[in-house]
Design a protein around this nucleic acid. Sequence first.
DNA 1: TAGGCCATCTGGTCCT
DNA 2: AGGACCAGATGGCCTA
Length: 258
Amino acid sequence: MDSDAGSTCSRSSSPDLVVDDSPGSFFSNKMFQKYCHDDTTDSRAGQSRMEHCSGAGKNKNRSELSKEEVQDLRLKVNSRERKRMHDLNQAMDGLREVMPYAHGPSVRKLSKISTLLLARNYILMLSSSLEEMRKLVGDVYGGSAAAQNRSTPHATITPAATSAQLSLHPLAQSLHPLVGSTPAALQHHSPSASLAAAPHSPPSASFLGFHAPLQGLLKEPLHLSSSYRHFPGMPCPCTLCQPLPTTTSTLHSLSINK
DNA sequence: TAGGCCATCTGGTCCT
DNA sequence: AGGACCAGATGGCCTA
C-alpha cells in the first residue's frame, strides 16, 4: 500500500493498469486527435506525426500497414510502455518502503528524485555506520576483536548482539546526548510487516520522522574531519549516536507499529 | 496562478 | 522483426 493512501494526495505512482484497447477510446485521446487531425505542422514533432499517420514513415513495411494495423501496433507499444513504467514505479514504491522516513496517511509520498537521492545518502550513511561499528568493536575488545576482524574481514556481526553491546557501552553513553533516546519514540509505519523486517535499522526518531527539512537530507553529505560523514538533517551516523533496537523482535515490533 | 510532479504517448535507438 | 529502453512533449493534478 502506498504511503500516501488515504491522504490528500491520493495519486498513486502505480495506478491500476487500465488498458482500454478499444479503438474508440484510443481515438478519443486528445493527443491522438492532434496526432491525426491537427493540420498545423508548425512543430517538428507534429510534422513527423503527420507523416507517420499518413503512412509516410521511413519503414516501408509500416507504410503498407492499414490504418487499423497501425493503430493496433501503436496500442501494443503503448501498453508495453505503460507496463514498463508501472513496473518501474512498483520498484520505486518498494524502495520507498524500506527508506527511513515516516510512512503514513498524513505524510506525503517522496517524489521519485527525492527517493533516489535519499536512498543514496542512506546507503552512504549505513556504510559509514558499519565502518564505525567495526572500529568501535575493535576498540572495545582490543586486539582480540581486531585480530578476529582481520582474520575475517567480512565477518558477520549479528546486529542484535552488537547493538546491544554498543548501547550499553559506558563510553557510548557519555559521548553523545542522542544516546539514550528510546526506540519507542520511533514512528516507522511500514505498510508491510514482512518487508518491514528488512535488514535496515531505523537510525533515529528524528530521522524517521523527518523532523529536519527534507531538503537537508537530499543535500550532498558533509565531509567532516571524522572518519564518517555527517549528513545535513540527519543525526550522527556513527554507531555511538544510533540507539539501535536491542533485538530483532524489537525491531520487528517497531516496524509493524502503526 | 506558477511551479512541481506525474502518467501517458510517441519516435528513435539499441539489443536479442 | 520485435521488444526494451530512453527522452521529449503534453496535459492533468496538487500545493504554496
